[in-house]
Design a protein around this nucleic acid. Sequence first.
DNA 1: CGACTCATGTAAGCTGTTACATGATTTA
DNA 2: TAAATCATGTAACAGCTTACATGAGTCG
Lengths: 183, 183
Amino acid sequence: MSLPHAILIALLEKPSSGLELTRRFDKSIGYFWSATHQQIYRELGKLEAEGFIRTLPSQQPARGQKKSYEVLPAGRAELARWTAASQDPRPHRDPLLLRMRAAAVVGTEGIEADLRRHLALHQRQLAEYEEIEERDFPPDKDSSQDRLRHLVLRAGLDLETFWIQWLTRALDEFAELPGHETA
Amino acid sequence: MSLPHAILIALLEKPSSGLELTRRFDKSIGYFWSATHQQIYRELGKLEAEGFIRTLPSQQPARGQKKSYEVLPAGRAELARWTAASQDPRPHRDPLLLRMRAAAVVGTEGIEADLRRHLALHQRQLAEYEEIEERDFPPDKDSSQDRLRHLVLRAGLDLETFWIQWLTRALDEFAELPGHETA
DNA sequence: CGACTCATGTAAGCTGTTACATGATTTA
DNA sequence: TAAATCATGTAACAGCTTACATGAGTCG
C-alpha cells in the first residue's frame, strides 16, 4: 500500500503528468521507491476515482494528450494519516545473498563476474547520489524540510556504501578460496 | 524467480518437510529470504512436478501426514545454473524512507514513535544475528563453505547496523527540529 | 507520408499476502 | 473425548513485471 502514497508525495512536491512522474521515479524518487509507467497510470486512475487527486483545470482529457495531476486536500490528509500510522518493517529478500548461500553448496563457478558487475553498478549509483547531494544539499544550508530529505538521501548513500564494502570483501574472500584462479 | 531456488538451497543443506522449511525460513534463512508456509507448499508442489525434488522414499503421502523432500540431480543442476546466471540488482522499495520523505511535506506528527519502535526491532534482530555468529562461526575455524555462509550473515549484521545508525541519526535530527517537544 | 518520439493506456502472468479449511497426533 | 497442536493445503486478492496497443505531434 505504498505506491499511491509515493505518488501523492511526488505530486505534492510538484504537480506532474504520468510520464513526468515516471521520469522522476526513475531518477530522484528511485532511491527510496521505484515504479514503472504502467503502475503509475493505473494508480493515477485509482487516486482520481477516490478523490485524492484531480487533473489540472484547463486540460482536455484525451488519449495521447498530456494530463497533469495535482493533489486535493483529501489526498494530503490521506498521506498524513498513512505517514503517521505504525507499520512493521518488511522482510528482506535479496537474490544476491541467496546466490552466495547457494554458492556455498553448488560451487562458486560463474558468480564472481556478476559480483564485479554489481560492484560497478553500485559504485556508479553512489557517484550519482553524491552528485545529487552536492547539488541539492550544500553544507549548512538545510531547512527543516531539506534536513529530512537529506536524511533520506543519506540512507541511499549509506546503503550503496554498504554494498560496495560487502562486495569488495566478498571478492577478497573469493581470491583466498582454494582452487581460485586469478585470471 | 528466487523462491524455488531458496527452497532448493534449504533442502540441499537438509531434507525437510514443508513445516520444517517454514521454521527454517523464519529463523536462519530469514536474513536473506523470507517466505510463508503457503508460498512454500505451493512451490514444493511445483518443484516436484518439474522433477527437481521428490518426497523421501518410505513415506505415504496423505493430507495431514508429514512429507519430507530431497533434491534430485536435476534440481541441483538448476540451482547451479541459476546461481551462475547474471542477474540485475532489484530496485529497492522502502516504506520507511518513503514516510520520512512524506514527513518533509505533511509534517512529522506521529512518525517519531514508530521510528523508535523500528529502532528497537532492528536492535533485537542484530542481537539475534550476533548470537548466530557466535554459535555457528567461531573465530578462525571457517571452512570454505562456512566462509561463504559467514559472509552472508555478515551482510545481515551490517544491514541491521546500518538501520540502527540511520534511525538513531533520524531521531537526533527530530530532536533538533523547530517545534519539537521532548516529551 | 513514413518514421520517430511523446504520452497514455490494456492485458496477462507471476509473486507474495491474508484468510480460511481439513486431517492427524498429542495431551489434559 | 475435547482441546490444542502439528501438518498440509485452498482460495481470493493485491502488487509488480513484461509485452503489447494506440493516438498525437514532429521531422525529414
